[in-house]
Structure formats: C-alpha cells, structure tokens
C-alpha cells in the first residue's frame, strides 16, 4: 500500500494549479500505462498531449474524467483531490458519491462523439443542465441554443444525431459539454473519427473557444499543426511518461530528446 500521508488534503498557496497529477500511476494488469506522472495545468492554459499510440495520452484524460480508476498517486482539481477524499486526516480512494461531486467541474468530448441517439441536438445539450444541474427547461434551452449558435449548429438543433455528419455531431458534442459550464474541458482525439474535409469545422470551434474564453483545456490530438497553433504547452508522452514538454514553438522547432525528434519526423513523413 502506498503511504498516503505525503499527499496534502488540499493544495494551498498563491499558485494552486487548476489540475495537478501527483505521482499518478495507472496499470492494466501487469502493463503499466502511466508511470508516476506529475503534471500541472494552470487556469486558462491549453495543454496538448501528443505521442505514439499506447503512450498513455488518452488515459490521462480518462483518469481526469474519472472514467478510469488510478493505481497510485492523487489527482487534484482546483486544489481539491479528485480521486481521493479525506477521511480521518488522510486521503482514501473516493467513493461514488464524492467522485460525482468532484468531477462536476470537468467536461469531455470524445473521439466518437457519444451523442445520445434518441435525443435531438438541442435535447442532447439540455439533458445535463436540466437533469444534473437542475436548471429550468427555459434556462437550459436558452443556454443550449446560445452554445449551438456558437458552434454553428443552431439550424440543426431539432435533428437527431443520425441525421448529422460526423463534424456536425462533434460540434453538438462540444456544445453539450460546454452547457455544463465546466472549468476544465477535455478533448480526446475529437477529430480522429472525422473525414478530412470536416476536420476544419471542429478545429475552428476549438480555436474560437481558446481565443474567446478562459477555459482550462487538455487535448489529445494527432493534428500537429493545429496543436502548434493553439496550445500554450505541448507534452510529448512516451511509454507512460512525459518525455519532453514545452511551448509549441520550442518543442516542434527544436526538440531536445531523440524520441521526440523521431516521433515528430515520423509524423511529418506521414503527412
């Protein structure tokens, strides 16, 4: 058992990060996907995670969304533990009730959109605000329509997902996540399942979010150009660890580590 006394019950001080991974380890059976990860994301920062498949980058987002349990370490969001709760002065693994409260500040968009097929675009966006946040239908509708307007989907608000293209579905999914007013947004390969010609409509929405809002965002993507354009920081993951990180121009322009160089040149060749 890990000694939990080394982890604070709460982060305090002037520069508490929005997200902190502290010594986080994730294993599937005997396979270690993430090995003692330390990562801070400050408020309003856009951090993009890149790396070869199987390097654990998607796992980082899924752990933050509490879709995966962790095997070691603690994740903090806004200074408070996400994966653990205080009990008798030490941190113990969070129960379902605590997790539900703790993850309310996090929103996520998925590779395969995961829109609810039996609801229209608007109903998809209103579902969380009405059912979870307890907003009135009127408030939720106003909020959802505003967001659908922002992602350019207001014309299709009464369509079911089966009538929408992949790019349109993903834009609705972004609006749906934003309707919950999260402090942290996670984008998990949101363009990977899209046809090349519609990728732009989704990346443009994310660009707009970055320039107009002060959201904290974590993104996993294979669109290197896009990542370079909009990120404040790039983390290159390799074999469950951060191999190298830094501002986009530095990391893409003059990578320091051999593995980073190999990966970037392999990606460039594939383009």
């Amino acid at each position: 058992m890990e000694d939990m006394s080394r982890y604070p019950l709460e982060l305090t001080g002037a520069d508490v990060p929005m997200v902190r991974f502290m010594n986080v380890t994730k294993r599937y059976g005997s396979l270690t996907v993430l090995d003692s990860l330390d990562l801070d994301v400050t408020e309003g920062e856009m951090v993009t995670i890149i790396g070869p498949s199987g390097s654990g980058k998607t796992t980082v987002l899924r752990m933050l969304m509490t879709l995966e349990t962790i095997n070691g370490g603690v994740i903090y969001v806004d200074g408070k533990p996400l994966t653990h709760m205080a009990k008798n002065g030490v941190l113990v693994p969070a129960d379902a009730k605590y997790l539900r409260r703790a993850r309310s500040s996090i929103g996520m968009c998925f590779q395969h959109f995961n829109l609810f097929p039996h609801m229209t675009a608007l109903q998809n966006c209103m579902e969380g605000p009405v059912q979870v946040l307890g907003l009135s239908k009127k408030e939720a509708r106003a909020r959802s329509e505003e967001l659908l307007e922002m992602v350019g989907m207001i014309d299709k608000k009464d369509q079911h997902p089966s009538r929408l293209s992949g790019g349109q579905q993903q834009r609705v999914a972004i609006a749906r996540a934003l309707a919950m007013r999260p402090k942290v947004m996670l984008f998990d390969e949101v363009t990977s399942a899209l046809d090349p010609e519609v990728i732009g409509e989704v990346t443009n929405v994310i660009r707009k979010l970055v320039s107009e809002h002060n959201l904290t965002m974590l993104m996993v993507t294979h669109q290197m150009g896009f990542a370079r354009d909009i990120s404040d920081r790039i983390c290159f993951f390799f074999a469950g660890k951060i191999e190298e990180q830094g501002p986009p121009d530095a990391l893409f322009g003059s990578p320091q580590r051999d593995r980073t160089k190999q990966f970037l040149s392999a990606v460039k060749e594939a383009d």
């Binding site: 969304m65 509490t66 879709l67 379902a96 539900r100 993850r103 309310s104 996090i106 929103g107 996520m108 998925f110 395969h112 959109f113 995961n114 829109l115 609810f116 579902e127 969380g128 059912q131 979870v132 749906r176 996540a177 919950m180």
Partner: peptide, 15 residues
C-alpha cells in the same frame, strides 16, 4: 455502446 455510459459520466449524471 460503452461510449454512451462514458458520455453520461462526463455529464455527471447519476446512475
């Protein structure tokens, strides 16, 4: 699909 369950978690819905 599993993604539907995950979307519910991401929207913080109860069981």
């Amino acid at each position: 699909p599993k993604g539907q369950w995950e979307a519910c978690t991401a929207l913080n819905m109860s069981t």
